[in-house]
Design a binder for these strands. Structure first.
Length: 328
DNA sequence: AAAATCAGCAACCGCAGTGAA
DNA sequence: TTTCACTGCGGTTGCTGATTT
């Protein structure tokens, strides 16, 4: 048996709101508040609308200090950065942008920002050498404190309490894994990228030992292992743990995909899809969007990208400490 | 000028979470 | 502990105006 509807659908008006309806609702809420009960509100206001509809109209359009219109570059960056960190949790993203609603941001992402990023990446790719990683440049990058300083500057405005976290992926032959300390210099940097949200990495790190059976480069060939390294450059200090290969975690994709974290379910799906097919689906009207095309864009400072074009395994995540997801 | 297509966005739908009874 | 009403969220739909053919 289905659930009882929240209102009598035959007797409620649907579709766009008229100015009169807006005025009634606005006036009532400004004078009396919502009373904590949206279901009974339409009756009180004498509106033939569903309570949910009233709530939506108020939150997305009528409430004070709503900002409509063009998004700024800064807002773009915040949205992108957060989207790459936490996925499509629009309400959380909206909370970082005063005056913007989750619906607005969602629409903006789906209609403009996503395309803008794709276009941007396409242009960058056209100017990027096709070779894989350059180990020397990677080392240079790690030693370049400005790299982190730049990232922190970029991220700081939106989220002062949040430290950027840098992850890279390494692909190593199975044999090298077994004797990693001896053969660490034989590790090769992958030119493909796999991204995980912070909560997934927390999940991964909580189990400590994971084995990988899949090479994200080659689907199910099972000949390589993937290693994730994380950096927590607090206070601008670079933790060169990658150099020592001490703190890496090899990741079994199954562990990630089957993660029970309630926060990461939808991200898991994306990870799964991008690992297995390199694509994610977008809206039903759109063609599939290549995640590989989309994901590397967000946190690259343009200046860095220009000078370090061959180094592409990096991505800066925001630590979602605000969600209580980060294990300290 | 008309029809077709596209893009933007407001609104709806259904599910999951929450808290009171 | 269970049930159920309600809220909040994210995905999707469909309307409308703009643009292209």
């Amino acid at each position: 048996m289905g659930r009882a509807p929240c209102c009598d659908k035959a007797n409620v008006k649907r579709g766009p709101w008229s100015p009169e309806e807006d005025a009634k609702l606005k006036t009532y809420i400004e004078q009396h508040g919502t009373g904590g009960n949206w279901i009974t509100l339409p009756q009180k206001v004498c509106l033939k609308r569903c309570g949910k509809s009233c709530r939506l109209r108020w939150l997305n359009y009528l409430r004070p200090n709503i900002k409509h219109g063009e998004f700024t570059e800064e807002e773009d960056n915040i949205i992108c950065s957060l989207y790459m960190s936490i996925g499509s949790r629009w309400s959380i993203i909206a909370a970082q942008l005063p005056g913007r609603t989750d619906n607005d941001i969602k629409n903006y992402w789906n209609t403009k920002l996503k395309k803008k990023l794709l276009l941007c990446n396409k242009q960058r790719k056209d100017h990027r050498p096709r070779s894989g990683y350059n180990h020397n440049k990677l080392e240079m990058m790690k030693e370049d404190k400005n790299f982190f300083a730049t990232h922190q500057a970029i991220n700081a405005y939106s989220w002062p309490l949040v430290q950027p976290v840098l992850f890279s992926t390494l692909i190593a032959p199975q044999n090298d894994l077994a004797e990693s300390s001896a053969n660490r210099n034989n590790f090769q940097y992958s030119s493909d990228q796999v991204y995980f949200s912070q909560d997934q990495l927390c999940q991964i790190s909580s189990t400590n030992q994971l084995t990988s059976s899949m090479n994200p480069l080659n689907g199910n060939t099972c000949n390589s292992s993937m290693i994730i390294s994380g950096y927590y450059p607090s206070n601008g200090v670079i933790n060169n743990s990658l150099q020592e290969y001490n703190n890496y975690i090899s990741v079994g994709l199954d562990d990630v995909v089957n993660s029970t974290s309630t926060h990461s379910q939808h991200v898991d799906k994306s990870v799964f899809e991008m690992v297995n097919s390199s694509t994610i689906s977008t809206t039903s009207q759109d063609q599939s969007t290549s995640w590989e095309e989309l994901s590397p864009l967000v946190s690259y400072p343009p200046s860095l990208f220009e000078t370090q074009q061959q180094i592409s395994p990096y991505y800066v995540f925001e630590e979602p400490t605000y969600l209580g997801l980060l294990k300290q």
